[in-house]
């Protein structure tokens, strides 16, 4: 359940790729414990928005205030910021040269957040949580897509982030495996994790999200509760978007 505390505040965010303006002034707030689903057609800027939050893309202008500090003010250490922001990618991006457990332990140990032993305990605990306790010593290539994505979630959680960003976490999966990953994300939401989920899974957005944001051509055209978004919306752009779905 969302609290009243504002965790993340985005003000008038703009992002250009060369001459192309991908984000045209995004402003929003995310409260601690809130689950925000970001939806929209391909190329609308929703992934770029997500990647701007942990500065995998550097915003052209605007403000991103995370836990009270402006992260775009050049003086802050981006790596420290990223330690508190977990991210899960469409293509999993597990490190193929390390076992599942090593994947999870790498960042906490290298960044000296935990000792080797603490990280090992943490990794086992997280693997249990995503239902892969028996896969600790496997290499990622041996796992199914769904299993890899669950490991990727565990890896992001190992740093104890305050917010999780999901960039189309189920888009690269077989339909059979979408459910297992969404269930993990849903459990995570229920445990009170703040998250922003870029997704094409409308069922998930309707069921899990506290809020749905619709992006269109780099602008937020709707930002409301899922009930309002899916049931009684008279915004023509929302109707247009929903008509694209089967």
């Amino acid at each position: 359940m969302p609290t009243d505390e504002v965790l993340l505040e985005v003000k008038d965010l703009h992002k250009y790729f060369g001459d192309l303006e991908v984000l045209k002034g995004i402003s929003t707030e995310v409260r601690r414990g809130e689950v925000v689903a970001v939806v929209g057609l391909s190329g609308c800027g929703k992934s770029t928005f997500l990647r701007c939050i942990n500065q995998l893309e550097v915003p052209t202008s605007g403000e991103i205030i995370f836990e009270g500090t402006n992260t775009l003010d050049g003086s802050i250490d981006i790596t420290k910021l990223r330690e508190r922001i977990g991210m899960v990618f469409q293509s999993f991006n597990l490190f193929p040269n390390m076992s599942v457990k090593k994947n999870i332990m790498l960042a906490p140990v290298k960044l000296k957040v935990m000792t080797e032993e603490e990280a090992s305990v943490k990794a086992e605990e997280l693997l249990k949580r995503v239902g892969l306790a028996d896969k600790a010593d496997e290499y990622p290539m041996k796992l199914s897509g769904g299993q890899q994505q669950r490991v990727a979630i565990a890896r992001a959680l190992a740093m104890n982030p305050d917010i999780m960003l999901f960039d189309e976490p189920t888009s690269a999966l077989d339909p059979m495996m979408v459910g297992e990953v969404l269930n993990i994300i849903k459990e995570l939401a229920e445990s009170g994790m703040t998250m922003i989920v870029v997704t094409h899974e409308m069922g998930f957005a309707r069921e899990v999200a506290d809020r749905v944001m619709l992006f269109h051509n780099g602008v937020v055209v709707e930002d409301c509760t899922p009930e309002k978004f899916f049931n009684e919306n008279d915004n023509p752009q929302v109707k247009e978007f929903l008509s694209h779905l089967i």
């Binding site: 995998l56 790596t79 990223r82 330690e83 991210m87 990618f89 490190f95 960044l111 990727a152």
Partner: peptide
Amino acid sequence: PKGQLEAAESLGMTFNM
């Protein structure tokens, strides 16, 4: 793949690391 660097950086690792 580019995603490998992004994944490492998203976890808070520096570019060198």
